[in-house]
Design a protein around this nucleic acid. Structure first.
Lengths: 162, 162
DNA sequence: TATTGTTATACTCTATAACTATA
DNA sequence: TATAGTTATAGAGTATAACAATA
């Protein structure tokens, strides 16, 4: 069936393009001299940002943010402060960190593949198609299976298990 | 600049869609009861396939394929055989493996987000836009930097490094 | 009792280096 | 000498569990 072949091809292209986008991001932030994870964190810190929020936005465990915050502090890019709720620690950029935030954003924008090669109309069309795919796919794809469940099937420990 | 905002949004959508596509694949193969990496290998084995070719197509180190082949053999899905060049070992599917290959392909096709939600014309448009982005981005994005070089900048060992 | 952040530890995935057999 | 596959090991990245402080 030609439709299936085209659907597979689209899946391949989307995955490849996302890898390209990640590589662009990595190249852009390498240019500025910041590891990817720190750059992502710097971009999402806005004012006094609770560490918990950072974990949510990065999609990682809160314990992992401890190490990120340590790195940012030791580089002088951000500092911890106590929140109104005294359990909470917020992250805020230093002056150096804020300047770097701007540099990172500019480097990423300059490198991005989406800004240069498409006309405004093409970008709009692409966005509509992508949103259409994303809006439905959660339901259409896995009616009896949440994504969180996926992969709980003893995926496979290690090649050296044997 | 509105263009930059839209470019960033497109990047976000593409990354999200690729994650959705991976989740679809994972859900589809979980349904059939095979770990993702084994399913990917089963899908690419065609006749007598040298293990080296498997490594190339999976994009991993040849040593890693040893473990994959061990798993496939222990599940009775494939077997090793000696190639004409006696250094080479080829992987070939067993009858059970061949049947599973069909099941996996069907499950993946059935679940895929690209088959159901777009018209034939929308799929064609999407493919053209994606190909346009992929055709140029390698050059336009990183003129002085191959992707292989990216990330060699001492990215960051571990959060527990303190 | 529930939540935030921290610490120590464990796990998954993958690569590197050294080795064997064949070319 | 170079290449295919194997083995053992190491590393990066991330999560889990137990904990202290605060709510």
């Amino acid at each position: 069936m030609a439709d299936l072949a085209e659907a597979r091809e689209l899946a391949r292209l989307v995955v490849r393009l996302s890898e390209t986008a990640r590589a662009h991001f990595a190249a852009a932030v390498a240019e500025v001299g910041v590891p990817v994870l720190l750059a992502r964190t710097i971009l999402l810190v806005d004012g006094r940002t609770p560490m918990r929020d950072v974990a949510d936005e990065l999609g990682c465990d809160p314990s992992y943010v401890t190490g990120i915050a340590d790195q940012l502090e030791s580089r002088g890019l951000a500092r911890r402060a106590i929140g109104k709720d005294r359990r909470v620690k917020v992250l805020e950029l230093t002056d150096v960190g804020a300047e770097l935030q701007t540099q990172v954003a500019e480097a990423v924008d300059r490198r991005g593949p989406f800004g240069h090669q498409l006309t405004a109309e093409q970008r709009r069309t692409l966005r509509e198609l992508l949103e259409l795919l994303l809006s439905e796919s959660v339901y259409a794809a896995a009616p009896n299976c949440t994504y969180e469940e996926v992969g709980t099937g003893a995926s496979w420990s290690s090649p050296t298990v044997s």
